[in-house]
Amino acid sequence: MNPLSENLPLQEAWSENTVTSMGFRAGRVLVYIPTLNDCNLLHELATGVRALDDNVTVLIIDDGSRPSIERSTLPDGCLLFSLPSNAGLGVCTHIALDHALAHGYEFIVRLDADGQHPVPIVLDLLKPLRDGSADLTVGIRTNHGNHSERDAVLRRLVKWYFTFLANLITAGAAPSDVSSGFFAANRRAMQELNNIMLERYPEPQLYSHACRSGLRVQGTDVEQAKRQHGRSNITYVDALSMIYRFTVYVIAEILNVRR
């Protein structure tokens, strides 16, 4: 059983994975962590990511937390940008892509601030990018963390709906979990994704666009860890909003194709 599915301290859980045997090769990596009022694990996460290799830089994007995140709470060498108010994950992703493209990073990885994305899997996501077999890799969640049974059923339904729509407009090329926030991309994918205006919850739009743009997208199974602090910022209203946004996006894409 993956130790990350247990409620272990992060560092203890990571130590049981094969980080050192798979270290980074050449190519700088920007790992960005967007966060909204979820700062308890940031130091631990950033330290864990930086321990993977010297070639990795961590960028924390504070999406309007109250109080805002203090630099002194982060490890030395981390980049931090605090948005004056909540702008959404789409804007955070654009900020990270802008920075990675402007400063010559070869790869970018997104990690959640709640500790649910196992840090060692970053290496698994990067592997297909490094060997040139993919432009974008997505962490496919194989479990649903510590949600209640009702929430888990709802999440499965939403996930199924998103995947159905994504497959509809990508001729079945979309990854099997288009609402996963755990992904890695090379420069080609970064440039392509930065050309569109990403929405507040951009994941389904991002992966669908990647597939439709001819990028090679691969999935990597991920057993997400239990949330260790705080709770999800996504409410039922947000979930409905996500469904609406992606449905409109898909309809617009279908109309666009057939015009």
Binding site: I95, D98, H99
Partner: peptide, 15 residues
């Protein structure tokens, strides 16, 4: 959003 992105780009470039 454009202004925020430019501001972020400048701030992060210094860092």
């Amino acid at each position: 959003i454009e202004i925020i992105r430019r501001r972020a780009a400048m701030d992060l470039a210094r860092q």
